[in-house]
């Protein structure tokens, strides 16, 4: 059976592959921003009784996830990054291949899961798992600190998608709190990045190796 939400979700699924293949920061930011927008409109398709408060909230989420945060990071790059490569530890082709395997694995895992009866989508869980793990992957195998922040954002996008599976009810206030935390977290990371640039003249995390046993 084909649900309308799956069309939207397939875009998010593809975006995670794009993210794995992006070699430059501006491209990666665009992918993450696009993913943020797609992920925030998914609940509109899932929710059965969409109220006006809910729509306002989804729009708000979309602005933060899709526009505000990516824009902040983009401005940050303009300000501090001289080198714009993501400095991969694992190459792009290998990353893409890992991403494909990941999608297959996520679909297999999805078959084992018992989801709430209200869920009306085939792709929701596989997409969520793929985005989440892709985010973690980028966090681990890119040495550029900005790419790491973007990986963290992808993880948060994935978790938000998982969160849409259970009945939304009236906890928008809670979702709002989570969103604020993510926003504040990214701001703190941005401040740290600026300082990193001042101290080392680069945002390569390989410089951070002073403290060890």
């Amino acid at each position: 059976m084909i649900y309308s939400v799956d069309t939207v979700l397939s875009l998010a699924l593809l975006s995670s592959l794009f993210a794995l293949g992006s070699s430059r920061l501006p491209g990666l930011i665009k992918v993450v921003g696009f993913q943020g927008i797609v992920v925030s409109i998914v609940p509109i398709f899932i929710d059965h009784n969409v109220t006006s408060t809910a729509v306002t909230f989804y729009m708000f989420t979309m602005t933060i996830r899709g526009v505000v945060i990516p824009l902040c990071i983009y401005l940050l790059i303009k300000k501090i990054a001289i080198r714009r490569e993501v400095q991969p530890i694992i190459g792009y082709n290998a990353s893409l291949f890992a991403g494909l395997i990941l999608i297959v694995a996520a679909s297999i895992i999805n078959k084992q899961l018992v989801l709430p009866a209200t869920t009306s989508s085939v792709l929701l869980m596989p997409t969520a798992i793929t985005i989440l793990v892709t985010g973690m992957f980028i966090l681990m195998v890119r040495r550029n600190a900005i790419a790491m922040v973007l990986g963290y954002l992808m993880m948060e996008n994935g978790i938000y998608l998982v969160g849409t599976t259970f009945s939304m009810g009236t906890h928008h206030i809670v979702e709002f709190g989570i969103l604020l935390d993510v926003l504040a977290g990214v701001m703190i990371m941005a401040i740290m990045l600026e300082n990193m640039k001042q101290q080392f003249d680069d945002v390569d995390t390989a410089f951070l190796s002073e403290l060890k046993e």
Binding site: M136, L139, M148, Y152, M155, I188, M192, N195, M196, L211
Partner: peptide, 13 residues
Amino acid sequence: LEATWKYVIICSV
């Protein structure tokens, strides 16, 4: 700076 970066990233993730 290194300690803070590790703290923020490891704890946030």
